[in-house]
Computed example of a mutant assay.
Amino acid sequence: MHVLILGGTTEARRLAELLHARGSDRVTSSLAGRVAAPRLPPGEVRVGGFGGTEGMAEWLRAHRVDAVIDATHPFAGTISFHAALATAAVHVPLLALRRPGWAPVPGDDWHGTDSLAGAAELVRGLGRRVFLTTGRMGLAAFAHLDDRWFLVRSVDPPEPPYPARLETLLDRGPFTLDGERELLRRYAIDVLVTKDSGGAATAPKLTAAREAGVPVVVVRRPPVPEGVRETPSPEGAAAWLDTLRPHPYDPYRRGPEDEPA
């Protein structure tokens, strides 16, 4: 089968590695191209957008794709909805690979919101020195908070608009608990802002915040498009692909025509 992985996440790379090792499928990973030096998975790789729903549907037809696995970031909502519409249009099976979200534990001081704009409003009442870990693309939502200081951590440098009082920390996970503890202490952070991305690579900041008594603003993830099946692991995605393969011929296997009327 020709499998298209909409990637850019750790889970997408793991799935590509798993399928590449099995060697039974042609695998193409699609990356958005928003990171300057992405970690490339094995197999074929394409970079850039598809040109909306119609462009993706045409690409699926032209490249004879048999299955699509949406393993994009949980907050990459636009591409997920385009994938749902495009695969439905060309009758190609679609699966969403989504790592489980985080859940608070005793001692956490979490404040939930559905948007970055909501997160900015919550920050006003929670702290003045903000550790902002929502990525470099949504900083405009915080640009008007001139009376707050921000530490922004991202893989690539952010582009304006962003807060006036800003320090950038260029880094890529996974992060350690000791490192996150030291970061909160060194910068005197009194509020953390994050998206509910899930996964272990960036989770230590939550533990460090709990230990330090630092409140956390958590942006809830958007839902998977209605009707799209989900799995939490690359292994689950590989197993789903196996269900799409034709069954070997079995002369004793009953077909619909053998069922009693």
Rank of each mutant, 00 (worst) to 15 (best):
G173K: 04
G173D: 00
G173Q: 01
P174Q: 05
P174I: 04
F175S: 05
F175M: 08
F175T: 05
F175G: 02
T176R: 10
L177Y: 14
L177I: 11
L177C: 11
L177H: 11
L177K: 10
D178R: 14
D178T: 14
D178E: 15
G179Q: 06
E180C: 07
E180N: 07
E180M: 13
E180A: 07
E180S: 09
E180T: 06
R181D: 03
R181K: 10
R181H: 11
R181P: 03
E182G: 10
L183Y: 07
L183Q: 07
L184S: 06
L184C: 05
R185H: 13
R185I: 01
R185K: 15
R186A: 13
R186M: 10
R186H: 15
Y187D: 12
Y187G: 01
Y187P: 00
I189M: 02
I189K: 05
I189E: 00
D190R: 04
D190Q: 02
V191A: 08
V191E: 07
L192F: 07
L192Q: 05
V193M: 06
V193L: 08
T194H: 02
T194Q: 09
T194I: 15
T194W: 07
K195G: 04
K195E: 06
D196T: 09
D196E: 12
D196W: 08
S197V: 10
S197P: 11
S197F: 05
S197C: 14
S197Q: 10
G198R: 09
G198C: 14
G199C: 05
A200L: 15
A200C: 07
A200M: 14
T202P: 04
T202L: 13
A203Y: 08
P204F: 12
K205N: 09
K205D: 00
K205V: 14
K205T: 06
K205H: 08
K205S: 09
L206K: 01
L206S: 03
L206G: 02
L206F: 11
T207N: 08
T207W: 05
T207E: 15
T207C: 02
T207R: 13
T207K: 12
A208C: 04
A208L: 02
A208N: 04
A209Q: 03
A209H: 01
R210E: 07
R210Q: 09
R210V: 03
E211A: 02
E211S: 04
A212M: 12
G213V: 06
G213Q: 15
G213D: 14
G213R: 15
G213S: 13
G213N: 13
V214E: 09
V214G: 01
V214W: 08
P215H: 14
P215W: 07
P215L: 10
V216E: 05
V216H: 07
V216S: 01
V217C: 03
V217I: 12
V218L: 15
V218K: 01
